[in-house]
Amino acid sequence: MIQVDNVQKRFAEQEVLRGVSFEVKQGSITTLIGRSGAGKSLLLRHLIGLDQPDSGRILIDGTDIVGMRTSELNGIRRRFGVLFQDGALFDSMSVRDNVAFPLREHTKLSEKEILDKAAQKLELVGLLSHGSKYPSELSGGMRKRVGLARALALGPDLVFFDEPTSGLDPITRGAIYRLIESTHIDGEITYFLVSHDITGVMAISDEVIMLHQGRIVAQGTPEGFRTNPDPVVQQFLLGSPDGPIAID
């Protein structure tokens, strides 16, 4: 489904991605982990086509999206759902209109059908009664849930999550992970998460990939990750300040 092949990205003197390659299986929940500032979110932006790599290929179902024209890329993006770090909800629109936005843009449904569908998605994330509120009236966790409802509105087959639980309390974090698991349909929808919340993602992911110093240092099942002898992986899993990963 997603193939990343030798992707490189440099900003002036800083080489952020140094030949990143990995594959994401269709229908899986795959999580990219790594330290803050490792380039995870940047890599995610490349997968969505918001940034272009200096070199390398990014294939979505065999189609290379690198250098693709925006109009062509938009054809592929219609199959995407994206949950941004802080929800990225439109603050000039109500919660209901935020969820209805992709439906209004890309479907020929009547207004009633659009609102019904938006209500369904809001119910899915437990926020049906908050439809008329504005994003500024919601808590961080609620904003992420609305973001998830919007990401799922068009019934995408590929959903990207950028730090879906950052800044949330442990209970809300648990609720978000439960929501991610419950909305995922095995073998049909692919979820690709970017996170540094190791405990949470190990519990829900089929595959985990670790990005460190611009390279993929490990990829495998959560179980395989736990038993990975690489000291970099072990230090990250343990959250220890002592080890090969230097503290900036």
């Binding site: 925006t70 993006r77 995407f80 941004f84 802080d86 990225a88 439109f90 603050d91 843009e105 990207f160």
Partner: peptide, 18 residues
């Protein structure tokens, strides 16, 4: 500017809208 900084413009792009 605020929409750019809060990723709202990125969100519009990611939803296949120019």
């Amino acid at each position: 500017g605020s929409m750019r900084n809060t990723q709202q413009i990125d969100a519009i792009s990611s939803m296949a809208v120019a």
